[in-house]
Structure formats: C-alpha cells, structure tokens
Simulated scan of single mutants.
Amino acid sequence: MIDHLVYATPDLGIVDRLGIAVGPGGQHLGLGTRNFLAGLGGGAYLEVIGPDPDQPEPAQPRPFGIDGLTEPRLVGWAAGVSGIVDVVARAQAQGYDPGPVMSMSRQRPDGVLLEWQLTPPATGLLPFLIDWGTSPHPSKDAVQGATLVSFRGFHPSPDEVHKGLSALGEELAVAAGELALEAVIQTSGGEVVLR
C-alpha cells in the first residue's frame, strides 16, 4: 500500500511553483533535509524533500540522491506496513532483501514527535518500507485537497521489478521504458504530473 511518494529537489523553493498545495512537515536533524507534505487521499501523502538551509552540511550524503540532483524529480515511494521486521524477513525468504530496519524521528512544527521504523530510503521502482507504529500518520495533518489519480513506473525489464514487488507483497503498474516513476495528481487547479 502506498504510504507516500518522494519528490526530491535540490531547492525547496520549488514548493511555491509545484501546483500542489503543501505544508511544512519538519526537519530531519543530522540529515540536512526538511520536507513539505500534501495529503493525496486514501491515507497516502506526497513528501517534497530537499536541503535544509537552517542545518549545517551533513557528514554523509543527503538521502534520495538529493546532493546530485540538478532539478526536482519523483525519486521513490514508501510502502506502509505494520510489523516491519516480519515483513522484511518474509521478503528475504522470497529472495529480496529490502535492507536493515532503522529507527527515525522528527518533530512536527507543532511540537509533536513522530517516530517510525523504515528500511533504507530507496530510489527507483521498488519501495522502501515504513512502519509508523503508534505515531500519528503524516497524511492526517498534511494539507488536503489533492488526490492521487494514478501512479506507475517504467523499466526496461518490468519482470525484474515485479519479482521484487511480489516478495514485498506490493503492487505497481510497470510498463516497458526508460527507468522512471510517474504520478498524476488532481488539484483544484487541474492535474499535475510528477516524474
């Protein structure tokens, strides 16, 4: 199940030109990033993430390849799960390793602390996994008004992607083509296509 889509950018000034109303999510302290969020309906949301000018340069590269981006791009997606350790073990047993489970947190602008577990944030067509545990889901407090109309991927060998998706128990429409993700989002001002 889609938890959220990740739209990474080298400059968060894009949020004013995106065509989708977003609100502040929060800072990822130590990672050098911050995000803005928009609800997409059905318990999913859009995360716009980029360098945080209020943090020092991080010791390691920023997630999602942000440091190498020259323009905004839909870089990945998260699948929401519960019992993430068990989900990872089942995927490994089917020949796909989503990576180790890590714990993270961030404080919302209103002071609420969100804590979650996830596998390493991945880019590409296979999702990373996220388990919000008892934290409130970000889609509930995100700016509302947008709806995810469609979400699909393109890959030179779609069957390879489907093997990984099957091991994770996830679905994504994948067509043959150059590696990319595409989301069509309906807003009050019309459709916005993110690639």
Rank of each mutant, 00 (worst) to 15 (best):
G124R: 05
G99W: 12
R108C: 13
Q55P: 00
G42N: 04
A93I: 08
P138H: 00
A175F: 10
T147R: 11
I130G: 03
I84N: 09
A180Q: 07
S105A: 13
L31V: 04
Y45W: 07
V161R: 05
G80H: 01
F154R: 14
G83N: 01
P121Y: 03
V112D: 09
P136A: 11
P98K: 07
H137D: 10
V15Y: 00
S105M: 10
G19R: 13
D52L: 07
V143H: 10
D3A: 04
A122G: 10
V112P: 02
A122H: 14
I49S: 05
I66L: 04
L113V: 15
K140L: 15
A89T: 02
P138F: 03
T33E: 09
G190W: 03
D11W: 02
G39H: 02
I49V: 15
A167R: 03
D3I: 15
L74N: 06
F64P: 08
A91Y: 10
L165N: 05
P109M: 01
L118T: 10
T33A: 15
V48N: 00
V192T: 02
D97N: 13
E115D: 03
T134S: 13
Q186V: 00
L40H: 11
A142G: 05
L129W: 00
A44C: 06
M1D: 13
A79G: 12
D159K: 13
I14P: 00
K163D: 14
A146C: 08
H4N: 06
L113W: 12
D110W: 12
Q92I: 13
V184Y: 11
L148N: 05
H155D: 07
P51E: 06
A38H: 03
Q186L: 09
T123N: 09
K163P: 02
P127E: 09
T147E: 15
A142N: 01
G99Y: 12
P136W: 05
A91P: 00
Q144H: 12
E182M: 12
A38Q: 07
G145Q: 08
A44D: 02
S188P: 04
L46R: 09
V87N: 10
R108V: 13
L113A: 15
V193H: 08
D86E: 15
G25N: 05
L40A: 12
P98L: 05
I49D: 07
G153I: 08
L126G: 05
G124S: 11
Q144S: 06
Q60F: 13
H155V: 02
Q94K: 14
S82E: 15
G95V: 09
V75N: 06
S166P: 01
P56N: 10
G50I: 05
G164C: 11
P51Y: 01
D159W: 02
V192Y: 01
F151C: 09
D67S: 13
A21K: 10
S82P: 03
G83P: 08
A176W: 05
T134W: 00
M102H: 14
I66K: 07
V85I: 10
